[in-house]
Design a binder for these strands. Structure first.
Lengths: 258, 258
DNA sequence: CGAAAACTTGATCCGACTCAACTATCGTGG
DNA sequence: CCACGATAGTTGAGTCGGATCAAGTTTTCG
């Protein structure tokens, strides 16, 4: 499949390009840093859908980056209920412990599991992450990393708002707009058809709803011509309207001209 | 022993001790680092209840530490709904941007507001935080900081689980056990009476419930002799039972012998 | 001591869940 | 290429947890 025909821009370019583009959108990177990134992506690992990347409570190994495919972080309750914390898209980093300090925090354990939702390709956890530990030598990488972190936390806060204070209708609108913006950042323009590999059950586990209710709510969004969703493909027909419904706010984590 | 009579252990010691104890529970600190902490706490600022520490979208200033009193991070929706993300207790750090990288991430804005829930005393945002930016020189401080961060994220994940997949009864049990453990760490033994300055409305805004329902659910917990709650004082009568009800897991973020 | 804030209580309503089919789509092997 | 089972999506009926509305009552504090 690889290219999937209709996909615009750099949906799935050379593995290292997605990571390069993503990180350099957070902070300017030197040529040396760029070459480190390329090197780190050279040995990308392929992982099938439904694989656990790490499990809650396990000591966490090296952090890594998603180059292609989707994954999520989640927790399983004792009685089988599932809660998804966030989604990992191409270009996203994960596996960070407390982060970029010297010795890698011994005894630190993952507070969540991570599972692939589609087939996925992972950056080799090689030199790249040793580098991040030397912020003086690689200031660009270190800053990009920290900014990506901050961004992810902002998304987590969005998620808390959805779960705590929004209706099913608002939650779905909010999440879909958020994903739309994230996909926009990695080359799928907002308002066009973008890949949406999440099943309704996955959406339900993320949004704290039942599958049945996710289904009905999606239909409502379709009926109102706010979204188009078929196969594994989503189009936000009216992003501003969706954002208004959901009280969605772009994370102004950093950069951004004005 | 400063004040307040009935409070056990080091509930409210000299300001710098709480921060010292807290941070050194995360990583061993050198004498030099300790003196930095003391210095930073010397100029503690007093802030009354109900004060905004910072607002969403504002560029964030220096990070700081709570030495006494409670605060919370929250977001306000357009229509007045409120969602509380987490609570800040004595010894907690806040105001972290993306964190401890070199130049302080220009353009980074707070993704949440922070408000004091009681009168509060804040560590002077002086030298302490300049120090954290030089991890090579102050490895203990840097690691403690990162660990505290990781811990806070783990609590945020707990919160997502509560909101997404638990009943009102479970949510309250879960939050109360969590607070119990956090208070235990700062000198209020688990199972004893501890300060609980949160109003039912605050609990409601944290747990995504209505005030009325928080009230009824608290009564159920009292009726079942799981908690005792009066005035601004809470006692977890049966922490294991509460933890079982709530499927509560201690964050094993780091250290801890085993 | 009075007013505001916090907490209770009861009645009613509704958003979302559950249960239980049923249909469509997808991948796979015969 | 089709038959098949499996996975994902759809639909309807009935129920319930928690919201809302509308009084109270108590506590706190100036």
């Amino acid at each position: 499949m690889a290219a999937a025909a209709g996909k615009p821009q750099m949906g799935d370019r050379r593995p290292h390009e997605i990571l390069w583009l993503r990180l350099s959108s957070f902070a300017p990177l030197s040529a040396e840093e760029r070459s480190i990134i390329r090197q780190s992506c050279a040995a990308a690992a392929f992982v099938p859908a439904g694989t656990a990347l790490h499990r809650e409570g396990e000591p966490l190994h090296k952090p890594s980056a998603l180059l292609a495919g989707w994954a999520c972080r989640l927790r399983l309750l004792a009685d089988g209920r599932r809660q998804i914390f966030d989604f990992l898209l191409p270009g996203d980093l994960f596996g960070h412990p407390g982060l970029l300090d010297g010795p890698p925090l011994p005894g630190a354990c993952a507070a969540s599991s991570a599972v692939t939702l589609t087939a996925v390709s992972l950056a080799g956890t090689g030199c790249l992450f040793e580098m991040v530990r030397e912020p003086e030598r690689f200031p660009g990488l270190a800053r990009a990393w920290a900014a990506a972190q901050a961004r992810q936390e902002a998304y987590l806060l969005n998620h808390v708002v959805r779960l705590g204070r929004q209706s099913a209708y608002e939650r779905l609108a909010h999440l879909l707009v958020e994903l739309g913006h994230r996909l926009d950042e990695i080359g799928y323009p907002l308002g066009s058809f973008v890949p949406m590999p999440l099943t309704q059950e996955t959406l339900a586990d993320a949004l704290g709803l039942s599958v049945v209710h996710v289904n009905r709510t999606l239909q409502q969004l379709r009926r109102e011509r706010l979204i188009e969703l078929k196969a594994a493909s989503l189009r936000l027909i009216d992003p501003p309207a969706l954002a208004a419904i959901a009280d969605f706010r772009l994370p102004r984590t950093l950069s951004s001209p004005g």
